[in-house]
Amino acid sequence: MTPLVVELVSDLFFIAGGFLCVTGGVGLLRFPDFFTRIHASGVTETLAAPLLLGGVMCRTGWSLDTAKLLLVIIFLLATNPTAAHAMARAALQGGLKPWLGAAGEEGNGEQGNGEQGNGEQGRRDAGEGEGSSSLR
């Protein structure tokens, strides 16, 4: 079996990775528009995935599986920016404009109200965010 220290380290990785995983999911639900949601999904993909896979790596011990898990980590880290960039570009070309907060509302609000109807949605979600702040 694996030594106690290695097991503790792997537990730590699992806890941190699991927490960041859920954080990304919550961010995906809470953030107001598509472009900010990409940042939330980045949290789960850039740090949570290596942490969880690293936790598994600690437990498999030295074998070929360790090298394969390392390959999975490298592959995820190499492809995540490309996929995020592809999605952002496709959304921009599809006429989606980033929501730039309450300050950008006057200048860019009309542009954001494009074919996708996202400007409206972004504003409504932002309103919910402000509502929760006033609750606090």
Partner: peptide, 22 residues
């Protein structure tokens, strides 16, 4: 790692302190 911690803090903050720039 640093920016992950920063974004995670913004996600869990009840007032959602984000100010998107483009």
């Amino acid at each position: 790692v640093r920016s992950n911690i920063d974004v995670a803090r913004r996600i869990w903050d009840p007032s959602l302190p984000i100010d998107p720039q483009w």
